[in-house]
């Protein structure tokens, strides 16, 4: 790509579930457009016959025996919960009413 597309930070922030201030949106747009202009240089490297490398070492079928072990207790798993009750995480109501 000759001219990299300008990043729509407000839209991407919604995808990432981040609420940004107008100042952050403006600053990140400037910073990240500069970064994207820089990374556009990757285009110069011919990768037509190159496989992507998702992992630094070949790790195939790293499976273990499926034997039951101990895990965190219910109580320990809840110790850092922002809200809890009845041995469970307490969350806001997520069923939205019909409009």
């Amino acid at each position: 790509m000759d001219t990299p597309p300008q990043i729509d930070v407000a839209y991407i922030a919604r995808l990432a579930k981040l609420e940004l201030t107008p100042e952050e949106t403006e600053r990140f747009s400037r910073d990240l457009n500069q970064v994207l202009a820089y990374v556009a240089q990757l285009e110069q490297w011919d990768t037509t016959h190159t496989e992507p490398m998702y992992h630094p070492l070949p790790a195939f079928d790293a499976l273990r025996e499926d034997t039951p072990g101990t895990s965190l207790s219910n109580e320990a798993a809840l110790t850092n919960a922002p809200a809890q009750g009845d041995g469970q995480f307490r969350v806001p109501k997520v069923v939205e009413s019909a409009h």
């Binding site: 990768t47 190159t50 490398m53």
Partner: peptide, 26 residues
């Protein structure tokens, strides 16, 4: 997070993320 979400988002994945993983091979 925003840069990472962008390079994985629809329409940009191949140009950025897949390309970077190929360059990683190089």
């Amino acid at each position: 997070i925003i840069l990472g979400t962008y390079v994985l988002s629809s329409g940009f994945y191949d140009a950025y993320y897949a390309k970077a993983q190929k360059v990683r091979s190089l």
